[in-house]
Computed example of a mutant assay.
Amino acid sequence: MLSGRAQITDCAATGAAPGSNACERQTEGAVDDALYGGVLNNDNSGRMSYVQIRYSGYVLSSNSELQSLTLQAVGSATQIDHIMSYNSSDDAVEVFGGHAHVKHFIAVGAEDDNLDTDVGTKANFQYGIVVQRPNIGDAMIEADTDNALDGNNPRQNTRVANFVFFQNSQNSSSDKASILLRGGTDYGLYNSVLVSPTNPCINISRTQTASGTQSVAADEFGAPIFRSVLMQCASTKYIDSGITVGAVASIFGTGSNGNDDAYTPTFTSLFINGANETKVAAFDVSTLNAQLFNGIELTRAGFFDKTSYIGAVKDASDTWYQGWTCNSTAADFGTGNTGLCTSLPTA
Rank of each mutant, 00 (worst) to 15 (best):
L35R: 15
V160M: 11
N289W: 01
A247T: 14
G15V: 00
D112H: 07
P18R: 06
V95C: 01
Q72V: 02
S215Y: 02
T236F: 08
V216Y: 10
S308N: 13
E28D: 09
N273D: 09
K122V: 04
T266Q: 07
Y187S: 07
Q170N: 13
S173I: 11
A6E: 05
N114R: 13
A77H: 12
A301C: 01
I83K: 05
S64F: 10
G274N: 07
N157P: 00
Q72F: 05
D305C: 04
A148G: 07
L292N: 14
M140L: 13
D81C: 02
I272L: 06
N87H: 12
T14S: 13
N135S: 13
A161L: 09
F221V: 14
V119I: 15
N273S: 10
P200F: 07
S89Y: 11
G253I: 09
G339T: 02
N157R: 10
I251N: 06
E220N: 15
D332K: 06
F252I: 07
I136Q: 12
G212W: 00
N124P: 03
Q291V: 15
D90A: 13
L71P: 01
S308L: 08
Q322E: 13
Y190F: 13
S178K: 04
L2S: 11
S192M: 04
N147R: 10
Q208F: 06
T264P: 00
L60E: 08
L2C: 04
T287V: 13
Q52H: 11
V229A: 00
I239C: 06
